[in-house]
């Protein structure tokens, strides 16, 4: 186990722990904040995996925009500040079973499948902006354009949905 591994594992533990807290905490706003922690840990993880552009985009968009949106949503729907008792639905035990089953299956399969796989992290620079940019605008340009149209549609849709005087 190299230092890289140890750091990555620590970041992973933080991410997973924060995620568990997101789904179990009794306080709505705290859930959003734990989500920030999780996203931040994940960004750190990306950095460890030499995907630095992705890490920054993660911080920018997820932590910067998505969580802020979620907080806006929480405020606009008059979410209770502080503890609220009923944030877990009646479904929770079935949900727990399904989640544990999912976790079990996935972890077992993946561990058994990739026991001997080692990713080479000594080749630096593959996650930088330049190689990724070239890749996006040369090879992945069509999906890129389609995505921009998707964004436009989402924008228009959100505005239309939120208007009061329809």
């Amino acid at each position: 186990m190299t230092t890289l591994d140890v750091v990555f594992v620590l970041l992973g533990v933080v991410a997973v722990g924060a995620a568990v807290l997101v789904v179990t905490t009794r306080q709505l706003v705290h859930a959003a904040l734990w989500l920030v922690v999780s996203f931040g840990a994940l960004a750190g993880g990306y950095l460890m995996l030499t995907a630095e552009f992705v890490a920054w985009v993660q911080v920018l968009i997820y932590v910067g925009a998505v969580v802020v949106l979620l907080l806006f949503g929480i405020m606009l729907t008059r979410a209770p500040i502080g503890r609220s008792a009923d944030l877990d639905s009646g479904n929770r035990w079935a949900a727990l079973a399904v989640a544990l089953a999912t976790a079990g299956v996935l972890v077992t399969v993946l561990v058994r499948g990739f026991r001997t796989a080692y990713a080479p992290l000594d080749v630096a620079g593959q996650g930088a902006a330049k190689p990724l940019g070239e890749s996006v605008f040369r090879i992945w340009v069509l999906p890129f354009e389609v995505l921009s149209v998707l964004l436009l549609a989402a924008l228009v849709g959100a505005i239309v949905l939120s208007r009061r005087e329809i």
């Binding site: 190299t2 890289l4 591994d5 990555f8 594992v9 992973g12 991410a15 997973v16 995620a19 568990v20 997101v22 789904v23 709505l28 859930a31 999780s38 993880g45 460890m48 995996l49 979620l70 949503g73 929480i74 729907t77 979410a79 009923d86 944030l87 877990d88 639905s89 479904n91 929770r92 079935a94 949900a95 727990l96 399904v98 989640a99 544990l100 999912t102 976790a103 996935l106 972890v107 993946l110 561990v111 990739f114 026991r115 796989a117 080692y118 990713a119 992290l121």
Partner: peptide, 30 residues
């Protein structure tokens, strides 16, 4: 880096997300 680490972290994150989608009562939490 042993590939198992990021992959297992991803699996656990996914399971936590599954639990949250199925068990949370507030739509924003979903």
């Amino acid at each position: 880096m042993h590939l198992v680490y990021p992959v297992v972290v991803a699996a656990l994150l996914f399971s936590a997300g599954v639990y949250g989608v199925l068990a949370r009562r507030n739509a924003i939490l979903v």
